[in-house]
């Protein structure tokens, strides 16, 4: 992928990620998150991870975001009223985030493979679904089944949690 497209999608993703945090209206935040996930899916495709890009769009931009919007609609949330901002907590939170970012960036700068470009792929370009499927069912079969149980437990848990208790 050309560097121009990479920086376009990266910038799009980061701007809309910031919009998620900055927007006061939860619906606007949720829609910004959808655009952010679409940019992220484009970055996955730029890394030749087509399968991951597709499930990113299907699962996140599709299912998860619809769930978020549905809950926002169900709870009838309005834009938050301006509360008194706790300046100490805000400054503390920002400082922790900035220190964290500086630390990670200094580690990336000292990590020598980070300066290298990606080596070219010599296999067939569209083979990643087969590769992931083989790994998933041969090497990671037990984790796959545990994930299946986890989803079953989550489904039952959600039904139990959202059942109205008779009092």
């Amino acid at each position: 992928m050309s560097p121009f497209l990479f920086w376009c999608f990266a910038l799009l993703m980061l701007v809309f990620a910031a919009a998620v945090v900055i927007n006061r209206n939860p619906v606007a935040s949720a829609l910004s998150l959808v655009v952010c996930f679409l940019g992220l899916a484009a970055l996955f495709v730029s890394l030749n991870a087509f399968f991951v890009g597709v499930i990113q769009i299907l699962v996140y931009a599709g299912a998860v975001m619809v769930l978020f919007l549905f809950i926002i609609m169900l709870l009838d949330l309005r834009a938050e009223k301006l509360r008194k901002i706790n300046w100490v907590a805000t400054a503390g939170g920002t400082a922790v985030a900035v220190v964290f970012l500086a630390q990670v960036l200094s580690i990336i700068r000292r990590f020598s493979p980070a300066q290298q470009a990606f080596p070219p792929l010599t296999g067939t370009a569209l083979d990643d679904v087969r590769g992931i499927g083989m790994r998933l069912f041969e090497n990671y079969n037990l984790p796959l089944q545990i994930i299946g149980i986890l989803i079953l437990v989550a489904t039952i848990g959600v039904v139990v949690l959202s059942k109205r208790e008779a009092r």
Partner: peptide, 15 residues
Amino acid sequence: VTLGDYLTVSALLFT
């Protein structure tokens, strides 16, 4: 585009 560019974008998104 280097590996470091992707890691930087990832770090920014995490932050």
